[in-house]
Design a protein around this nucleic acid. Structure first.
Lengths: 157, 157
DNA sequence: GCCGTCTTACTCGGATAGGTCTTGTCCGAGTTGGCGTGG
DNA sequence: CCACGCCAACTCGGACAAGACCTATCCGAGTAAGACGGC
């Protein structure tokens, strides 16, 4: 899994704490977490394409949340950054090899291995989809929002 | 996720169907699924190191299952081939950046993002660990074992 | 004083290299099975 | 006929390249803000 998943989630949370008043430039977010600025942009762009963030061009531009935190699940962020592909991909190797008829009736039902992997993937996705950004904000220690806003104000000078 | 996971699972199932009487060489397994022989060896070696397969050297050698199918979970195979690492790795970027004290009390508790990802990973692993090779064998279409043995006998000539 | 226009600086966005991991391949060490020879 | 030793073939095992994906970077297009001049 790409490291950008972690970046994306933390950036979304920070943007939620800061609020929608001023958008936050990618360079400032990179400074915030000590990440490579030019590369973090790519992650934020992916989130924008997915409709999770909203990019504001021009001077005083930047990024802000495009939806309410309660309407963005962890799964949404992960799909936006890492792509929608299932980590396991069944290539149907059971049908390959000499002496195998691909049109045999046993191949009408999906391969048992694929089924198990798919169920596990589903459990994983269900867990990630059951938590929203709002949940993460609530589970933060008391005063975190205040500290974040204060630190941001100090950063802007 | 590595493609070898699929290979490893199918190989284990085939070895289970063939039975422990004769070990099956890697080259023949590669032929069976039309896979690159030299590379499949690497996958089988990993399964051997994990104690799932047993390698028999010398002429008429090959690989066989080292344990009962009921004692090998899908998770075991996946860990053996893909490694035990969690796909998500928390790098604690929340502690980075200017104006943050890493020894602050809020960092004593694990980061909420990490916790969610960990729970999802746990759900995924639990699902994979709940299915054994024996389950997969049972869920196969009727007559699959017979067909496999027959095809193998024909392949040996 | 106010409005319109221009410049300017800042922002995002996609196109462009480098590093690391997965994929793929090769050849050597070790072992077993078969064969020949001697008793 | 049986046992022993030798040879040869086959197998696994780890060391060695190629390709793909993730990581990282740069520069250009577009836009909003601010400054300037005219009314």
């Amino acid at each position: 899994m790409s490291e950008q998943v972690e970046w994306g989630l933390h950036c979304c949370l920070t943007l939620a704490w800061i609020g929608d008043e001023h958008p936050m430039p990618a360079a400032r977010l990179a400074d915030w977490f000590e990440l490579p600025p030019a590369y973090l942009t790519k992650c934020l762009q992916a989130l924008t394409r997915a409709g999770i963030l909203q990019s504001v061009p021009g001077a005083r531009g930047g990024f802000r949340l495009a939806r309410r935190p309660a309407d963005v699940t962890v799964m949404d962020v992960l799909v936006a950054v890492d792509g929608p592909d299932n980590p396991f991909r069944c290539t149907e190797i059971r049908q390959r090899g000499a002496g195998v008829d691909p049109s045999a009736p046993e191949f009408r039902t999906p391969c048992a291995i694929s089924t198990v992997m798919h169920r596990a993937d589903l459990a994983w996705r269900r867990e990630l989809a059951s938590h929203t950004l709002a949940d993460l904000l609530e589970s933060a220690p008391a005063g975190a929002a205040e500290r974040t806003r204060r630190r941001y104000a100090q950063l802007r000078g």
